[in-house]
Design a binder for these strands. Structure first.
Lengths: 350, 350
DNA sequence: GTTAGCACTCTAACAAGGCGAGTGCTAACG
DNA sequence: CGTTAGCACTCGCCTTGTTAGAGTGCTAAC
């Protein structure tokens, strides 16, 4: 294993000590000294020995001291080693799994709401902020378009994509919405858009189409414009955010406000997640491993969920570097699994 | 006017001084002393005179001292007097109004999304947290139910209410969704639910209906259950939240986390808002005027928006008592107006 | 009613000193 | 050679003491 530039394999005792430091610090948030450590460590050696070991761990860069005279704290590298080699993942008890599943099933079945629900559950479970992206499938096609008249001149248009995204928008016409127009619209749609990708419902195409309709164009084109708007909304991945306020609980956390603002304008994250599409296992970025300045003191754990066998969206956890990796990772894993399954269920019989 | 138990009408000079204290404190967050105050006050008197006046204002309870030797801060009563008598509301410039309007029009037209957009705008404008409730109309009826098959055994059901709420849910059947079943479903729906209130789609009614369908009951009842779920969702007012993170900016604000948590579990607020349904003008609750413990250090300003001439939902601002009332109130007023208009537009031709 | 002057109060800011946790080093031990 | 006890040392935190400054209320004069 490469840590800090060289291959390192720690002795068993060093590993025990490192693991103990990490776990103690995660649990308490206090830097830990040789003596305190010994109390939590089933080793029959003296504190001096532990100190010697700790000095070496310091030299290797796995732990560091906030100031000369207080205990040690895991460094970023220390967390990394812990996560890679030492952590025993805690398995979710079956009962809790059941509870989680039932809560997510209570959502409406729309991907966005499943994700909202899952995000809330995960936020409660982990005390982290949770981000998630709606399913994205570059090969998704428009499966269905419905036009539901509301008033004489208004209608609600609904678009359903093959990735399960449902979007709706109110459309307001300049003239009355007659059956003729509706029929014409459905014809145009089924001929030109159904089964095609959302991209194809471009403004340019809409315009040329409108031209070809001659004098009917005037009445149908507002509908087509709305269609194109919906297509835009459908192909856009949306990023959902839950449990932001959890971040405020971590008092040692520099500037929660900055992070919350960052998450709010979170296009960055969305594109980052989508560039990590083909990973299966959860990925963990600790502190500066992260490329965003705002997250340099945070850890991000994210994992993709699969809909119909294809990676299609991401669930991510964001918290301070001092988070309980051993507990969070299995929770995240389980949630992505569940979310994927439920979404696939909805779509499996296409 | 009743303030602190007695009728009070302050002298013109006292009013000027009080207004100046309130405005200075709102702007800077610093307690203000007689000397500093004089600099911002177009009065040709000495600081001693001002001190005398301030002493009387203190005795009357309009201002108070955080500690013996520092400037004065408006008391809750002081804010109240200011808001009632002294404040000149700042009028939004036309240009800004235009900008706001266009941003809200970019929303999809669904009430929920209009409110989300409006909430975001308002949060940016005011630096407060914004809450809003979706339109609620006790006389609302189910206007339309659509069933959109997705797979062989799954369908998406969409419900539209006369108050403009659109909700959808995926429904999973035990057997194949045939045209027969769909037709039967539509028949049952149009006979029993369309034009009726959402309340009537109760579980009990669904059950008796299912019984009367005899052997077809098995296939249709999952659909009817989903219908009932949707009716529940439609009649529930939803509470939306934007700009929570703004609260973190107010450093003097005791415990932003507590407030954020309170807002998150905000059923309280929803019911509180709905109990204030028939007010037209914005209402302002300052500090302890508020009945919720968590908001004792906050001010809440809320105002109802009208859809089709009827009060139907609320927009509210939440911030520390030290907020710029003179600026926020007109912003809120304008936003409620706009939101109401846009929503009414969508529905006006029922 | 207004003003100048003054003594008084109280906090925020800074400095100094003691405490204690924790360290690294050294020397001794098995 | 690894382990251990002992010890001097470091350095942040807490407490205490002091000071400067802002602001007040009061009094006496205008």
């Amino acid at each position: 294993m490469k840590y800090g530039g060289g291959d390192v394999k720690l002795s068993e005792r060093k590993e025990k000590i490192l693991a103990s430091i990490v776990e103690y610090y995660i649990a308490t948030g206090e830097p830990v000294g040789s003596k305190t450590l010994l109390e939590h460590l089933p080793l029959s050696v003296s504190s001096a020995t532990v100190r010697n070991e700790m000095a070496e761990l310091s030299a290797l860069g796995f732990i560091e001291q906030p100031h000369t005279s207080s205990g040690r704290v895991p460094s970023q590298l220390g967390y990394r080693y812990y996560v890679d080699n030492l952590m025993n993942q805690y398995e979710l008890p079956l009962q809790e799994k059941r509870l989680i599943e039932s809560r997510i099933l209570s959502a409406s079945g729309e991907p966005q709401q499943i994700l909202e629900q899952a995000g809330q559950v995960l936020a409660e479970l982990t005390n982290c902020a949770v981000v998630s992206t709606t399913p994205f499938d570059e090969h998704a096609v428009i499966r269905r378009v419905e036009l539901v008249p509301i008033g004489a001149r208004t209608a609600m248009m609904i678009m359903l994509s093959s990735s399960g995204i449902l979007k709706s928008k109110v459309c307001r016409l300049d003239c009355e919405l007659t059956l003729d127009i509706i029929e014409l619209f459905y014809n145009v749609v089924s001929k030109n858009f159904i089964g095609k990708s959302a991209e194809e419902a471009s403004v340019a195409k809409i315009q040329t189409l409108a031209l070809s309709l001659g004098n009917k164009s005037l009445s149908v084109s507002p509908l087509l414009i709305t269609l194109s708007d919906l297509a835009r909304m459908t192909e856009q991945t949306q990023l959902l955010l839950e449990g932001q306020s959890n971040l405020l609980n971590y008092t040692d956390y520099g500037n929660a406000y900055e992070i919350m603002e960052f998450l709010r304008q979170s296009d960055f994250l969305a594109s980052f997640f989508s560039s990590n599409k083909n990973e299966n296992a959860p990925r963990i970025l600790i502190g500066k491993e992260n490329r965003f300045r705002e997250l340099q003191d945070s850890s991000v754990i994210f994992s993709n969920y699969k809909v119909g066998g294809k990676e299609s969206g991401t669930l991510g956890l964001i918290g301070p570097t001092r988070i309980d990796y051993a507990r969070l990772i299995p929770s995240l894993k389980y949630l992505t699994e569940i979310v994927g399954n439920i979404m696939s269920d909805t779509l499996d019989e296409q």
